[in-house]
Structure formats: C-alpha cells, structure tokens
Design a protein around this nucleic acid. Structure first.
Lengths: 208, 208
DNA sequence: GTATTGTTTAACAATATTGTTAAACCTATG
DNA sequence: CATAGGTTTAACAATATTGTTAAACAATAC
C-alpha cells in the first residue's frame, strides 16, 4: 500500500519542517524569521515549505497555536484540580517553572506576538477557553476568603504576582544574567531554587 | 547667522523623525517596523529619514539607547539613594509602576530586542553601568541581613521578584486584559492599586 | 536679486524576501 | 520494467523593503 508509506513519509517531512519552524519562529518571532532560516534548519529546499504549508503565515499559525497550548496547558490542568488553595499554588508554581526550564523562549514568544497583533487578538486566542480560565480559581479564592482561611486579597493582583514571579525571569533572562553576572547554568540553579522561594512568598502573603 | 536657524530647523525635523521612529520602533520592534511607517507617521518622505539617519539600523540604535535609558533611569537613581531598605523598596516599586504607566510598551520592547540579539548584548548595554548596577543594593541587603534586620533571603531572588511583579503586567497586558475581562482603564486602576499591593508583598517577605 | 547652503522630494536602483513552476526524482505497484 | 503518484529541487517571478540620486525648493547672506 503506497498510501501508508507516503503518509509516513509525509509526516516525517512535515514533522521535520515543523520542528525547524518551531525553533526559528519561537526564537526570532514572526517578523524576524525567514523562510530561508527554516529551510536551512530543516536541511531542505525553500519551495518545500510552501508545498507543505502554502505560506509563511499559515505555517506560523500552526506553530503559534501549538506554542500557545504549551504555554497554557499545565496551568489550565492544575487550575481545574480540586486541590486545597495552598497546594494548588505550589503546584502551579512548580509546574510552571519546570515547564519553562524546558521551553524558556515560550513566554517572550507568546506575549510578544500577542502584543504586536492587537487586532487579531480574538482570533489568536479563539481556541483557549479564555473566560472560564481564571474564573474557577477566582471563585476558589473568594470562597477561601469568605471562609476566613486566607487574607482578603484581590485575586487579580494575586494571579498577576503568581504569573509574574514565575514567568518574568525567563523573559528577562539575558538581561538578568548580564546584570547579575551569572551564567546559563547558574540561571537554571536559581530557577530551580526559585520554585520554593516563590511558593513561600505567595502562600505567606495569604496568611493572616 | 544661517547656522542657528538651520540648526533649529534641523532639530525640529530631526525631533519630528525621532518621535515617529520612537513610536513605531517601540510598538513594533525593529524587525516589524518599516521605514515607510516611520515616514508616514512623521508626514515626510522616506528619503528624508536616510538624509538624517543614514540607515534603519542607525536610527534604531538611537531609539534603543534612548528607551534603554528610560527603562533603567529611575531604577538606578533610587538604588543610589541612601534610603532605609524598606523605603527604598517602596520607592522603587512606586516609581517603576508610575514610569511604566506612562510608557507601557517599554519593557516588552527592551527585553524583546535584547533577547533577540544575544550576540550584540555587550554592545547594546555598553552605556549602562551593568556591573555596579545591583551591587549597591545587594550590598545593602546583605548588610541588613547580617544586622538581623531582615530575613536571610537571596538578593537575586528578591530583585527578580521586585522587577517581575512591577514589570510583568505591562508585558502581558493584552493577554491579562483578555483573560480577566478588563478594559484599558480598569487595567490602569489595577496598576495604581498594585503599587501598594506589591510594596506590601515584598516588604512583608523580608520580615522575620 | 542672485548665489550659496542646506532641506525635501520624486523617481530610481539594489537588495531581500516570499511565492511559483516545471522538471527531476523516488518509490510502490501492476 | 514502465508508469503513476506524490515528493523534491533548481530556476524563476513577484513583491516588499531599504537605500540612493539628481533635481526642486526654501532660506539666508552678499
């Protein structure tokens, strides 16, 4: 059967291209990325990119949605558990930092592309359940506040701080490394330690 | 004297161009910015941009250095005061958020350009006293720790948290607004309130 | 007023980047 | 082994973007 084999071949080449595209787009962003870069990274002809994905824009959309999902996935998963609030926070922080240690370029890529395309925002985020996103967590916080288990904080401020303390270092990494005079490996060590530092900071801020 | 008058005219046109360049580069970043965009924003011919600044790259350098300075300036100024640690932290937070409420696109612009030009890092930051930057503050924190006035925290982690909690919301603004379902004006209100929220969070984390 | 100098523009040139096409190349199948 | 299918490439075409130039223009100095 030729179908199967060609399909396999298709997927190999397609995956090869996608890997290259992922790497280039994620590192450089849409505007600075060149089809040539991607072709070279994949070790193939530029025309083949168009054969598989028609245009730069279409190819980018695939990578963007994929990256967006990676960016949100663990967050959403943990938010939807029914862990007690403090465990959930610790879980969010640990999982977020661990994820970003694997894909450190993700936040800058996502936030940059979103900020630079204010018109297409709805379209870009259409596959994310944007609204129900934080509602569960806000609800849980409000309940805990009402029950007197935590301090009455503004959930929006709290979520901002949670995301900020975990994500920001990866966005500012080159600057931070330079300013603090640390290396790539030292950065990783700092971020590993940071999981506990941030968990403590955030949880302590909820205690009365 | 013709010199004076042409100088004035020069400066007018030059400033006009710089304003347009600042606006376009800061919003779009180098790669996505078009000389055409800048010329249109300034209401002049494209060739005039080259007459004044030779090339896109040269023009960008001016804007980048200018923006970098805006980004660092108040930070450095406050760091070099001899305020007690808690006052200094509050001062840093208030000043940083106030600055960014005026220039909300600054952080994404700076951190993006730095991250996407890892090779030119030294050159880009050559006019910032990178090394002495945090040293003073780290020194101050260590002294306070030694004196038993604050908890023994890692100054690097603390500075990361300070910058993160102030700066990150501006980088993630479009996403946050969408996710939280808030408007531009509401965002400003949240950020005004955030000055005190963050100050409290950070200072509390230093108490024993 | 006209010559000089710097400013501005329109038209052009050069380059970079994306996109297309026709033919070469496999590979499986009859 | 010929051929039919999809795959891959080299060469080309089209467009977008930056950069240049010569001439028009404006203001000043003589």
């Amino acid at each position: 059967m030729s179908k199967k084999i060609t399909e396999v071949k298709d997927q190999n080449t397609e995956q090869l291209i996608l890997s290259a595209a992922r790497s280039v787009f994620t590192k450089k962003g849409f505007a600075a990325a060149r089809m040539d870069d991607i072709a070279q990274e994949a070790g193939i002809n530029r025309a083949l990119l168009h054969y598989y994905f028609r245009s730069k824009g279409k190819m980018f959309d695939v990578i963007f949605q994929e990256n967006l999902k990676s960016f949100y996935a663990n967050f959403l998963e943990i938010l939807s558990t029914d862990l007690p609030i403090r465990d959930k926070i610790r879980s969010l922080v640990y999982s977020e930092i661990d994820t970003l240690l694997e894909r450190p370029e993700l936040p800058l890529f996502i936030l940059n592309e979103i900020a630079r395309n204010p018109d297409n925002l709805d379209e870009m985020l259409q596959h994310v359940e944007v609204h129900s996103f934080f509602k569960v967590f806000v609800q849980q916080m409000k309940a805990e506040i009402a029950a007197g288990n935590i301090r009455p904080v503004d959930p929006r401020q709290f979520i901002m701080s949670l995301m900020a303390t975990c994500i920001f270092p990866f966005i500012a990494k080159p600057m931070l490394n330079k300013v603090m005079g640390i290396s790539e490996t030292e950065f990783k060590k700092v971020m590993l330690a940071r999981k506990e530092v941030v968990s403590e900071l955030l949880i302590a801020s909820l205690e009365k």
